[in-house]
Simulated scan of single mutants.
Amino acid sequence: MTRTGAFRLAEEVTSYVYMILAVVQNVYVNYGKPGQKALTHVTLEEAKKYVEEDQFSVGSIGPKMEVAIKFAEQSGRAIICSLDHADLAMEGTAGTHIIN
């Protein structure tokens, strides 16, 4: 299932949380550079600003952030996290949470 298909499914079942599983525990800004920072809880405005700043790789986390932002705009909350930390992410203690 593509991210677009998964997004549509989440809308169809009226999901309030959209979780995207990735190989990373968190989304980072300034990745691999001085000032690298893991994002834990960010607002829609902050997330959109980071996208505009090209903080996320087009071939990696960028598309995931764009879909997460779109879902959070409509339903309130999206999470990007690793499979190993999905349970903690649902509790709010792991992953990157994009909150409307």
Results as ranks from 00 to 15, higher is better:
17 V>K: 14
17 V>I: 13
17 V>H: 06
17 V>R: 14
18 Y>F: 15
18 Y>K: 07
19 M>Y: 02
23 V>M: 07
23 V>D: 15
23 V>F: 04
23 V>R: 15
24 V>D: 14
24 V>P: 01
24 V>N: 15
25 Q>D: 15
25 Q>K: 13
26 N>I: 01
27 V>T: 11
28 Y>A: 06
28 Y>V: 08
33 K>G: 02
33 K>N: 09
35 G>H: 12
35 G>W: 06
36 Q>I: 05
36 Q>A: 13
37 K>N: 11
37 K>W: 05
38 A>D: 11
38 A>C: 06
39 L>C: 09
40 T>E: 11
41 H>V: 11
41 H>E: 13
42 V>E: 08
42 V>S: 09
42 V>F: 10
43 T>Y: 03
44 L>P: 06
45 E>I: 10
46 E>V: 03
46 E>D: 14
47 A>Y: 06
48 K>I: 07
49 K>G: 05
50 Y>N: 04
50 Y>R: 08
50 Y>I: 03
52 E>D: 14
52 E>N: 13
52 E>V: 10
55 Q>P: 05
55 Q>K: 14
56 F>H: 07
56 F>P: 04
57 S>K: 15
58 V>P: 14
59 G>K: 13
59 G>H: 14
61 I>F: 04
61 I>Y: 02
62 G>V: 10
63 P>N: 08
63 P>D: 08
63 P>C: 06
65 M>Q: 12
67 V>S: 09
68 A>V: 06
69 I>W: 09
69 I>R: 13
69 I>Q: 12
70 K>H: 10
71 F>A: 08
71 F>W: 07
71 F>S: 09
73 E>A: 03
75 S>C: 03
75 S>M: 03
76 G>D: 05
77 R>E: 13
77 R>P: 01
77 R>T: 11
79 I>W: 01
80 I>S: 01
80 I>T: 04
81 C>T: 15
81 C>V: 09
81 C>N: 02
84 D>M: 01
84 D>A: 05
84 D>F: 00
86 A>C: 01
88 L>V: 02
89 A>F: 00
89 A>Y: 01
90 M>D: 02
90 M>T: 08
90 M>I: 06
92 G>I: 02
92 G>D: 04
94 A>P: 02
94 A>G: 05
94 A>R: 10
96 T>A: 05
97 H>S: 13
98 I>L: 01
98 I>W: 01
98 I>K: 05
